[in-house]
Design a protein around this nucleic acid. Structure first.
Lengths: 255, 255
DNA sequence: GGACACATGTAACTAGTTACATGATTTG
DNA sequence: CAAATCATGTAACTAGTTACATGTGTCC
């Protein structure tokens, strides 16, 4: 339940229409709380109905007409209440890390390219943040609200710094893996988590292949469309090894 | 569309029942892709219907009966496809940063306590990750899949390091702000949201307050500029100061 | 008067959350 | 055999996404 409060904050900073808000959610506030224009219009409606904000423009509810909102005292009170209410951090969901983990199981083919792309995106974002800091927070600006806003910007900068650093490290690792795969080419399947014995050559083939850095996207079957029934005789991937001493943690599997 | 792939990955690492998966999503995979048991059961049903996984247990579809699943070749293929498909990073949503930004507008009352709580949570998580690293990734483990899993763990560690560092910094900043507020106390008794004198004055009172709390003590800074909230007598309908000199970025507002 | 940017909105969908229902197995 | 716990599931809801509809003002 944060979107309404994001909007209240934005409107307190500057009364705006839906589209103006949308634009501001593309930068600024949107850097840590994104929202589409549909979400915003819907929420503006609710907030108005609840009496937390009100439309400024007298009365011209025509469709293509601009309609600005401002925050009412009740809205401000609600924002104060929300801000000082304890909230648990939401459990994180990061698809890139998930993909990396999947890659540890099925092979890393093709992932490297996207890793590089992400690195570039984060580098660009970081540069943008730094530029904003240079421009908007010169030394000396230290009124409490400036400090708080600067703190938020610092979080953005530090986060992007983390990502660029980590992605750089990851790419270096990928290169090393590819190299060592070259060294031991054809010798082994390089699979660790559980003892895999024969049973599924496709998997070994894939793992080996990806270790060799072969990039390909069309190994896969139909992504959507109708999947005809389960391949009847198809042997499932191998059963877990009896000595399944699995590691634990975000990078591995708990026992 | 990552949940099914998270489940496929988990099942490849080890065939499991719904509840087992749920438990593993509380740690391990759940550290970067969380899911509730309801999500998991629903998704298992879909995946089975699509022929990507299948139930291991012959046939006992009774209600309280355990039911393990394994991944079929089609499921593995789909995971490979997904892993090597480019995906844009999802725009972030962090409620804590949003609250901080709101605090810059309505006052920071009560936020500090929760900041401290979050710091503790992140410290605990960081310690857990480090322990996992010590236990599961001793030097020498460098098969490709170990390296990839370690990489994911490193991301977790670095992320938590970022948070603890940033939260520490934020709390220090809060202390400073509080101190400088002490200095100027007596000049004005209003504090936080209670400063509301009436609907129309509430906003001004608060903005003014925070501007008057400007720090000028220990940190060698020039006297703060006269950037305050809306100037005298502004009604809530009035946009902020004429200069429109609002900063921009995640920590501030674009003009 | 057509193209286009501006501005607001509807509808349908997907993903995630919360609350609760129900049967099976263990254990005191 | 009652209670606790294991295990699977249903239902209703909230939040976020995607696609498209419709009107207004401007500029050429």
């Amino acid at each position: 339940m944060s979107l309404p409060h994001a909007i209240l904050t934005a409107l307190l900073e500057k009364p705006s229409s839906g589209l103006e808000l949308t634009r501001r959610f593309d930068k600024s506030i949107g850097y840590f709380w994104s929202a589409t224009h549909q979400q915003i219009y819907r929420e503006l409606g609710k907030l108005e109905a609840e009496g937390l904000i009100r439309a400024l423009t007298a009365e011209q509810p025509a469709r293509g007409q601009k309609k600005a909102y401002e925050v009412l005292p009740a809205g401000r009170a609600e924002l104060v209440r929300w801000t000082s209410t304890a909230q648990d951090p939401k459990p994180m969901r990061d698809a890139l890390l998930l993909r990396l983990r999947a890659a540890a199981v099925v092979g890393a083919g093709g992932l490297e390219v996207d890793l590089r792309r992400h690195l570039e995106l984060h580098e660009r974002q970081l540069a943008e943040y730094r530029e904003i800091e240079r421009r908007d927070f010169p030394p000396g600006r230290d009124a409490p609200d400036d400090r708080l806003r600067h703190l938020v910007l610092r979080a953005g900068i530090d986060l992007e710094t983390f990502w660029t650093g980590w992605l750089g490290h990851a790419l270096a690792e990928f290169t090393q893996i590819a190299e060592s795969a070259q060294d031991t080419e054809g010798a082994q399947g390089t699979k660790g988590a559980q003892g895999m014995k024969g049973a599924d050559d496709a998997r070994i083939a894939e793992s080996t292949e990806s270790a060799e850095n072969a990039v390909r996207g069309e190994v896969a079957g139909p992504p959507d469309g109708e999947r005809a029934g389960p391949p009847e005789g198809a042997a499932p991937t191998e059963p877990p090894g009896p000595g399944g001493a699995e590691p634990d943690g975000p990078g591995s599997e708990g026992a």
